[in-house]
């Protein structure tokens, strides 16, 4: 099994507050890794370190190693623009741009300028197909993205990420703003996506982690308490705190 990302001794600070403490974790290629834990445990902070989105928040600092294709993501010399193209992110609330559906898919493609203009129609179709949105929107590609339902908007956000040809997709509670039907559609979609991509998903729902992921990491108070195969963790947790959490004894 190939390890796509290797995290070693990761610490993260908001000002003087340490939000992550000495995290060590291996992210496996073409697998879904779920991050669970009560709110404020550091799971969202963790995925923000992987594509350096924390750069956008003032007064933050990370140290340690996140090894990805021979470089340390946390290095000052890492090209964050290139990095974020390779490691896509889907947010908690759907955040399509106020543009048409096709413009949303092409948004980053056009600005990266690394794909041929004559391929644009096929990029649109392929990305939307992979995000299982094509059949629902193929007749209205020029309509505003805001005309879509919440679940469709979220799949559009996945499609626009796929259009940049990433290796890894980070998802920060992508279904927390969606209804159960839209949620199950995204969950089905994830099983398709992992054939081509490595997925890391933050989720507030243990059931979701159990349903969809191959590996699960349990965070508590900025520490990684337990990490392992999902099946094992939910059937035989090694740590008492993990057990307490998955049996519902934390909030």
């Amino acid at each position: 099994m190939t390890i796509k990302i290797k995290v070693e001794n990761l610490n993260f600070y908001y000002g003087s507050f340490q939000a992550l403490q000495n995290i060590n974790i291996d992210i496996h290629e073409n697998r879904i890794t779920a991050l669970i834990g009560p709110s404020g445990c550091g799971k969202s902070t963790f995925i923000k370190t992987i594509d350096r989105m924390y750069d956008l928040i003032e007064d933050t600092k990370a140290d340690g190693t996140i090894a990805f294709e021979g470089i340390n993501i946390l290095d000052e010399s890492t090209d964050v623009v290139e990095l974020r193209k390779r490691i896509g992110m889907v947010f908690q609330k759907p955040n399509p741009f106020p543009k048409s559906i096709s413009e949303n898919v092409l948004y980053a493609v056009k600005r990266h300028g690394d794909q041929d203009k004559k391929d644009f129609p096929s990029i649109i179709e392929n990305s939307l197909r992979k995000a299982s949105l094509w059949d629902e929107v193929k007749h209205k590609l020029n309509q505003s993205a805001f005309s879509l339902s919440g679940g469709q908007q979220q799949r559009l956000c996945i499609a626009r990420t796929l259009a940049t040809k990433p290796d890894i997709i980070l998802m920060d509670e992508p279904t927390s703003a969606l209804d159960p039907i839209a949620t199950s559609k995204i969950e089905e979609l994830l099983q398709e996506l992992k054939k081509e991509y490595t997925v890391i998903i933050v989720t507030h729902s243990m059931q979701q982690a159990a349903r969809i992921s191959d590996y699960t990491a349990f965070f508590l108070n900025g520490e990684l308490i337990e990490f392992g195969e999902t099946k094992e963790m939910f059937t035989a947790p090694r740590d008492k705190r993990t057990e307490d959490y998955i049996t519902g004894r934390y909030g």
């Binding site: 990805f68 294709e69 021979g70 890492t78 090209d79 290139e82 390779r86």
Partner: peptide
């Protein structure tokens, strides 16, 4: 992954 480019 490439090293940082300068975005002139």
């Amino acid at each position: 992954m490439k090293k940082k480019k300068t975005y002139i």
